[in-house]
Simulated assay, not measured.
Amino acid sequence: MRFFRWVLAAALLTGPAAFWPAAAQVYTQSDPLAHTFSIVARDPKTGDLAVAVQSHWFSVGTSVSWAEAGVGAIATQSFTNKSFGPRGLALLKSGKTAQQTLDELLRTDEGRDVRQVAVVDSKGNVAVHTGAKCIDMAGQQTGAQFSVQANMMLTDKVPGAMARAYEQGAALPFPERVLAALDAAQAAGGDVRGRQSAALLVVRAQASTAPWDDRLIDLRVDDAAEPLKELRRLLQLHRAYEHMNAGDLAVEKNDVPGAIREYEAAEKLFPDNLEMRYWHAISLANKQQVPAALKLLRPIFKQDPNWRTLTQRLPKVGLLTVSEAELQQILTLK
Rank of each mutant, 00 (worst) to 15 (best):
M1C: 11
R2S: 11
F4G: 10
L8V: 12
L8C: 02
P16Y: 04
A18H: 13
A18F: 07
A22Q: 05
A23V: 13
Q25P: 00
Q25L: 08
V26T: 10
T28L: 01
H35I: 14
S38Q: 05
S38G: 07
S38E: 01
I39W: 09
L49M: 03
Q54I: 14
S55E: 08
S59E: 05
A67E: 09
A67Q: 10
E68Y: 01
A69L: 10
V71M: 05
A73H: 09
A73Y: 06
A73D: 07
T80W: 03
T80K: 09
F84M: 01
R87M: 05
L92Q: 09
K93R: 13
S94A: 13
Q100N: 07
D103R: 09
E104M: 12
L106Q: 04
T108L: 14
R112W: 11
S122Q: 12
G124Q: 07
N125F: 07
K133L: 15
I135D: 06
M137N: 15
F146P: 07
A150N: 09
G160Q: 09
Q168V: 04
G169H: 05
P175R: 05
P175A: 08
A181K: 07
D183S: 14
A184H: 12
G190E: 07
R193C: 06
G194K: 09
R195M: 10
A198Y: 05
A198S: 15
A199K: 05
P211Y: 05
R232G: 10
N245L: 12
A246L: 11
A246Y: 02
A250H: 00
V251H: 03
K253F: 03
P257G: 08
G258N: 07
I260S: 02
E262W: 01
N273E: 13
L274N: 10
M276Y: 04
R277E: 02
W279T: 06
W279I: 03
I282R: 03
A285E: 01
Q288M: 11
L294T: 05
T311Y: 00
L314E: 01
K316S: 04
S323Q: 10
A325E: 15
I330F: 02
L333I: 06
L333N: 00
L333S: 06
